[in-house]
C-alpha cells in the first residue's frame, strides 16, 4: 500500500494512470450531469414559496460545495506536499486552485442571480455570500503567489503553506462573518428552511453535486498531466510519451 502510494507519486506511473482515471470519472460524470439537469429543469416540481426561481439552487449548491471541497482537498494535498515532498501533491495544489477559483466565482454569481428576485437586490451582506467572496480572494492569493515565484517547486511549497494557513482560517472567517451578520441584520432566509425536501428535488441536487465533483476530478487530472509533462520535459519518459503522440 505504502509502496504503491509512493510509486503513484512519481511522474511516469502517475501519467498513464491519471489519463485512464480521467476518463473513468468523465463518463459517469457526464451521464449524471445530463440526468441531473433533466431532473433539475423538468422533473422537479415547482416550489410553492419560490416558484420556478428555486431551480437556481441546482447549480448554486454544486458550485458552492466544490468551492469548499476543492479548498479542503488543497489543504490535504498541502500536508502531503510539505511532509513527504510528493511532486504530484505539489502539482495538485495549483492545478486545483484554478478550477476552484472558477467554481467559487460561479457560486457567487449564481448566488447573486438568486438574490435579485428573492431579496430584491443582487448583493446582500449575507454571511454565506460574504464568506464565499473571501474564499475567492484566498484562491486568488494562492494563484498570485504561484505566479510570483519563478522556481515552480518552491512556488508549490509556498502555495502549500498558504493553502494550509488559509484552510485553518476558513472556518474562523465563516463563523466570524456569521456572528457579524446576525448582529447587524438578523438571520436571512435560509435556503434550506424547509425541513424535508421533496425527493424529486433532492435527487437532482445530489446528482448534479456528484457529477460536478467527478468532472472536477477529470479537469484537475487533465491539468496535472500537462503540468507534470512540462516540469519533467527534459526527462526520458516525457520524451517517449510525446514522441509516441499519446
Amino acid at each position: 500500500m505504502w509502496l504503491w502510494f509512493h510509486r503513484l507519486g512519481s511522474g511516469p506511473t502517475f501519467y498513464p494512470f491519471a489519463g485512464r482515471l480521467a476518463w473513468l470519472l468523465a463518463i459517469p460524470g457526464l451521464l449524471l450531469l445530463l440526468h441531473g439537469l433533466y431532473g433539475a429543469l423538468w422533473a422537479a416540481p415547482v416550489d410553492y414559496q419560490q416558484g420556478q426561481g428555486y431551480r437556481m439552487i441546482f447549480v448554486h449548491v454544486p458550485a458552492a460545495w466544490l468551492s469548499l471541497f476543492i479548498y479542503s482537498s488543497m489543504a490535504v494535498a498541502a500536508v502531503v506536499a510539505l511532509i513527504w515532498r510528493m511532486k504530484v501533491a505539489e502539482v495538485y495544489i495549483i492545478d486545483a486552485a484554478i478550477p476552484g477559483a472558477g467554481f467559487t466565482a460561479a457560486a457567487l454569481i449564481t448566488g447573486m442571480l438568486w438574490g435579485k428576485p428573492m431579496w430584491g437586490t443582487y448583493w446582500v451582506w449575507d454571511a454565506r455570500l460574504t464568506s464565499e467572496l473571501i474564499l475567492l480572494f484566498l484562491y486568488l492569493g494562492v494563484l498570485a503567489l504561484d505566479q510570483a515565484i519563478e522556481d515552480k517547486r518552491q512556488a508549490a511549497r509556498a502555495c502549500a503553506l498558504l493553502a494550509l494557513v488559509g484552510a485553518v482560517n476558513v472556518p474562523i472567517v465563516h463563523y466570524s462573518v456569521e456572528w457579524w451578520n446576525t448582529l447587524h441584520q438578523g438571520p436571512t432566509v435560509s435556503k434550506f428552511d424547509s425541513p424535508s425536501m421533496d425527493m424529486r428535488m433532492l435527487v437532482p441536487l445530489l446528482e448534479l453535486t456528484l457529477a460536478s465533483t467527478l468532472l472536477f476530478g477529470t479537469i484537475v487530472l487533465v491539468r496535472m498531466r500537462a503540468t507534470l509533462l512540462w516540469r519533467e520535459r527534459h526527462s526520458r519518459w516525457v520524451g517517449e510519451i510525446v514522441e509516441a503522440g499519446q
Partner: peptide, 26 residues
C-alpha cells in the same frame, strides 16, 4: 420559467461555462 428566466438561465449558463470552460482549457 415562471418569470424567472432572466435570472435562472444565466446562472445555468455561468455554471456550465465554468465547468466546460475549465475542461476545455485544460
Amino acid at each position: 420559467m415562471g418569470g424567472y428566466a432572466v435570472y435562472l438561465w444565466p446562472s445555468y449558463v455561468v455554471f456550465l461555462a465554468v465547468l466546460f470552460g475549465a475542461w476545455g482549457t485544460a
